[in-house]
C-alpha cells in the first residue's frame, strides 16, 4: 500500500493512508498515515460501527489538511473496543 501511495503522490495527487503496522509504514515511507494498533482486517474499525469508522476517516482527512512534511504517521491511540467513539464534528474540518 505504501508503494502505491508514494507513486500516486509523485504523480501530483495527495494521499492519506490508514496503517495497522507502524514499523512497516515507517520503513516504506508513506506520505501521510494514521496508525491504529487494531487487528488486521479492520483499518476503520468494527463492522457496523459507523462512529468508529467515521472517526478514522475524520482523522485521515484532518491529517491530509494539516501535515506539513512527508512521512508523518499520526497516532491517535484509540483503544479498540475500550474506546468510546462519537460522530466527528465535520464542520471543524473546513
Amino acid at each position: 500500500m505504501g508503494l502505491i501511495a508514494r507513486e500516486i503522490e509523485a504523480a501530483g495527487i495527495p494521499t492519506v493512508a490508514i496503517s495497522l503496522a507502524q514499523e512497516l509504514t515507517a520503513s516504506v515511507g508513506v506520505p501521510r498515515a494514521v496508525f491504529v494498533k487494531w487487528p488486521l482486517g479492520h483499518p476503520l474499525g468494527e463492522a457496523n460501527a459507523s462512529a468508529q469508522q467515521y472517526t478514522l476517516i475524520y482523522d485521515a482527512l484532518h491529517l491530509l489538511l494539516t501535515a506539513t512534511e512527508p512521512g508523518v504517521i499520526a497516532e491517535p491511540g484509540y483503544r479498540w473496543r475500550r474506546q468510546e467513539y462519537t460522530e466527528p464534528e465535520w464542520s471543524k474540518l473546513r
Binding site: 508514494r6 503522490e9 503496522a21 512497516l24 520503513s27 515511507g29 506520505p31 487487528p39 512527508p70 479498540w80
Partner: peptide, 30 residues
Amino acid sequence: AIPAVVQWWAGHFVRRARSSPDGPISFTRL
C-alpha cells in the same frame, strides 16, 4: 489478527528490509 502480533510481524518484515524504496518521499499539498 492480534495487534501485538501484527506489530511484531511488521518489525520482523522491516528488519528483513525487502520493500523500502530509495529516495525521498514525494509530498503534494491539497
